[in-house]
Design a protein around this nucleic acid. Structure first.
Length: 591
RNA sequence: GGUCCGGUAGCUCAGUUGAAUAGAGCAGCUGCCUUCUAAGCAGCAGGUCAUUGGUUUGAAUCCAAUCCGGAUCACCA
């Protein structure tokens, strides 16, 4: 039941009946009443006062009176303060709301029923391990997919693996040069880290060779081109494209190591995909778009044979879609892949979780598909997110300032262990239960930290300060859930309707938070923004803790009060679980 | 240089389809565990919302200009 929607309908009705003013209920703005004023919800009167030609205060009085008379079962009373009409709903209404909430067997919505959505996320290169930036991407993608699912959509999670190209060859060359046949197994190293180490070795060696060449009189640019290791890498890329067996074999082997490593990380953090695309399979797909676009007059050819699209009319530039030598560029591949995905899944919407440095690229991609009149072009949505930066600026692999994904997860688990041991509340847990709890808390803290910020904004991570377990954090919300579970284990609420009873302020505040969930879920899905759910989960937990501190549940003033509080606690736990579940964060029964 | 994004408390962030005295958390300071989990609660302190001008009954929010920071504009991916 959506309380605000009901109030809007009541308002629209009295506006129409008594004041002959027709408005769509959705157009009305209802806010939660600020805590310092009496009331549950507030209508801001200014925008209505104008078309109705009434002073806001007068309009407020009229509307308040009309609402209370017309809907005595729902509207208890009202106050008008300046241009604000504060409405208080009846206890009967709220009791009925709670009954309905408690008897609902699912919190799933059906808003997006019948919609098919692809969510592409993670999409790593295979030359180095995942880092904190990938984690933001992965948690965002997973969460958005989960939110869509919980709104009724069919979701296909997909990953595009960039498994080919010059960067992969760099790791391969370095391995040939320096590894002496070492493998992840022989060195007891996780596969993606193993390959990443050779990528670092490549850069070290390249730097050394460049310095040498510069010392012997070359310019820096010449040196970069002439360095033997760079030349060997370029040759390897050509060999790869020519299908040279020994290169392909090494490539397969090294990528295999990386996939094993990624798989381990994905399993650890709870990421999954229904479909994985490999660029080595798809990078040639876009080429057929070029002839199509030329035929439609969308593309044009330059004298050197290269193919372009002119987007200057759209305020962008001319963009290359095929090189003079007939080979694809990045955007060509993406055109092909969009088509490939559509052929396979016929999506209504295709969400790309990609960092904001690619805003321009994604704009161009969508524009080209629109110009080619592809039916799926308008369904493409770039979920653009800001980079995770350090206090000193961007993470740079060359300067070794990258925060490794596996490291940070391990570190969080260690912190979770230390804090849990310090508090000593779960001494009766088995070893397995403890491991599971540490992991739950660690990932809760990490995911919450990365998801609580608006995706569009870049965020700063300070490695000097470990991620908090107190305040606006995952563990705070998890703790509140565990607290409630412990309560409910002592005594579960009875089923059946609540007796007539009134609400104390803290109970009412918690109730209002409980009623707020659908509004937040709707916002999260319409904005593709999980952070609103993180903020909600925190606010709800805070309301509960405040309530819990003021009123005893087990020693309530009466049996009725106890029943009411048990229901409030139960529904709070349920919504914490739901909100956190949308973020991919599990909540414990005890901690 | 063109385009886009951002600048809110010491720090990290909410609030930006205009609306009540700009909110949280962390850090700092006070209190609260013989009673349901103190990873908690209650409180204090902390703000020229980058600057200037404009629109409006009303501006952190809209407009313009300026300053600062970032991204992007590759026959790289």
């Amino acid at each position: 039941m959506r309380v605000i929607a009901q109030i809007k309908e009541m308002l629209a009705l009295v506006l129409d009946e008594a004041l002959h003013y027709k408005t769509a209920p959705e157009a009305l703005v209802i806010n939660s009443t600020k805590p310092e004023f009496e009331g549950d919800y507030t209508l801001v009167l200014f925008s209505l006062a104008k078309p109705l030609r009434l002073a806001p205060e007068k309009l407020g009085e009229q509307l308040g009176e009309l609402l209370v008379q017309r809907f005595p079962a729902q509207m208890a009373r009202y106050t008008v303060i300046k241009g604000f009409l504060n409405l208080t709903l009846t206890d009967t209404y709220w009791l009925q709301f709670l009954d309905e909430q408690a008897t609902r067997n699912s919190l799933q919505e059906t808003w997006l029923h019948g919609k098919k959505v692809m969510v592409e996320y993670s999409s790593p290169n295979t030359n180095k391990p995942l880092h904190l930036g990938h984690l933001r991407n992965i948690f965002l993608g997973w969460s958005v997919a989960e939110i869509l699912k919980n709104c009724g959509a069919e979701v296909i999670k997909t990953c595009v693996v960039n498994d080919r190209g010059i960067h992969i060859c760099k790791s391969m060359i370095a391995w040939q040069l320096f590894a002496n046949g070492a493998t992840p197994l022989s060195t007891d190293t996780k596969g993606d880290h193993f390959v990443g180490d050779y990528y670092v070795k490549f850069n070290d060696e390249l730097k050394r060779q460049i310095e040498q060449l510069v010392a012997s009189g070359r310019t820096k640019q010449e040196a970069e081109k002439e360095a033997p290791i760079m030349k060997a890498t370029q040759q390897m890329l050509l060999d790869w494209e020519a299908g040279k067996p020994e290169v392909l074999s090494l490539w397969n082997t090294m990528n295999g190591w990386v996939y094993e490593g990624f798989e381990q990380t994905y399993r650890q953090i709870g990421a999954d995909f229904q479909k994985t695309y490999y660029e080595s399979n798809t990078y040639l797909l876009g080429k057929k778009f070029v002839s199509e676009g030329l035929a439609q007059g969308v593309f044009f050819t330059k004298e050197d044979g290269s193919t372009w699209i002119d987007l200057t009319a759209e305020g962008l530039d001319q963009k290359l879609v095929l090189r003079g030598d007939g080979t694809s560029v990045y955007i060509t591949q993406d055109l092909g892949l969009a088509q490939e995905k559509y052929n396979e899944f016929a999506y209504d919407q295709s969400i790309y979780v990609i960092a904001d440095e690619q805003n321009y690229h994604m704009k161009v991609l969508q524009l080209i598909l629109e110009k080619l009149q592809k039916p799926y072009a308008k369904g493409i949505f770039h979920l653009s997110y800001g980079m995770v930066e350090l206090p000193s600026g961007r993470m740079k692999s060359r300067e070794g300032t990258v925060v490794d994904a596996d490291d940070i997860v391990a570190e969080m688990i260690a912190v979770a262990r230390r804090k849990t041991e310090e508090l000593g509340k779960v001494k009766d847990f088995t070893a397995e239960e403890l491991e599971s709890l540490y992991r739950m808390l660690a990932l809760g803290a990490l995911k919450f930290f990365l998801l609580r910020v608006d995706p569009k904004k870049k965020m700063i991570f300070n490695p000097e300060e470990s991620i908090d377990f107190q305040g606006f954090t995952g563990p705070f919300v998890q703790y509140t859930h565990a607290r409630i579970c412990s309560l409910l284990k002592k005594e579960a609420p009875r089923s059946g309707p609540l007796p007539a009873i009134s609400f104390l302020p803290a109970e009412r505040e918690l109730l209002l938070q409980i009623a707020h969930y659908p509004v937040v879920l709707e916002q999260a899905v319409s904005e593709q923004n999980p952070s609103v759910l993180a903020i909600y989960a925190f606010t709800l937990a805070k309301s509960f803790n405040s309530f819990y501190n003021q009123h005893s549940v087990m020693q309530a003033e009466s049996a009725e009060k106890k029943q009411l509080r048990l229901i409030l606690a139960q529904q709070t736990a349920r919504l914490i679980d739901a909100a956190m579940g949308n973020l991919g964060i599990a909540v414990p029964q005890r901690m």
